[in-house]
């Protein structure tokens, strides 16, 4: 019953967070069900309450409370650029894989991530992993360990992607 204690202790952040979470979840329910019968709306409301209760009880995202307030449209340039990079890297990896002589030279790199915030570094590491040809194995502090299919795959994008994600710095 820690949830009720926490709520009773007047933690306004918990209330506000639960409210926003519930709003998003109920919107998702409406979107997915696409039906407005009272029964389904009621079931959706109940499940929303249940999930909000569980989320508050687990105390998830209380510390990362800003995750809801991120402006999704600011980094739109970054997303577009990332999609372009993913397409390019896919063609590169596919060519290497289908080539009869299998011209790969796997390497492990260490790269310094220049983002200040944790979220920025995680975004950077995830976009490195999402691009085929490079995979972030480990992230400790600022040090990023990357496994690459060949050197070209790294050099074509790592420094560039770092500065992109730094400009983003959520």
């Amino acid at each position: 019953m820690r949830v009720f204690q926490r709520l009773a202790r007047g933690r306004r952040r918990a209330w506000r967070h639960g409210f926003y979470l519930g709003l998003v979840l109920f919107g998702l329910w409406l979107l997915l069900s696409g039906s407005f019968k009272p029964l389904l709306l009621g079931l959706g409301f109940l499940s929303t309450l249940l999930v909000v209760y569980i989320a508050l009880r687990m105390d998830v995202a209380d510390h990362e409370g800003r995750s809801i307030h991120i402006n999704v449209f600011r980094p739109v340039g970054f997303w577009v650029w990332l999609v372009g990079q993913i397409v390019r890297a896919n063609l590169h990896v596919t060519y290497r894989v289908l080539h009869p002589r299998l011209p790969i030279s796997p390497e492990v790199f260490h790269v310094r991530a220049s983002q200040d915030s944790e979220l920025g570094r995680v975004t950077y590491a995830n976009s490195v992993t999402l691009t085929p040809g490079t995979i972030a194995i480990d992230l400790q502090g600022n040090e990023l360990e990357i496994h690459a299919l060949d050197r070209e795959a790294v050099e074509a994008m790592v420094g560039h992607k770092d500065s992109r994600a730094a400009a983003l710095d959520l």
Binding site: I86, V97, P106, P132, H147, L149
Partner: peptide, 15 residues
Amino acid sequence: DFYTRMHPAGVIDTM
């Protein structure tokens, strides 16, 4: 090996 095989798995998942 395993680490190189992760790259084509990425091709399946993204492209």
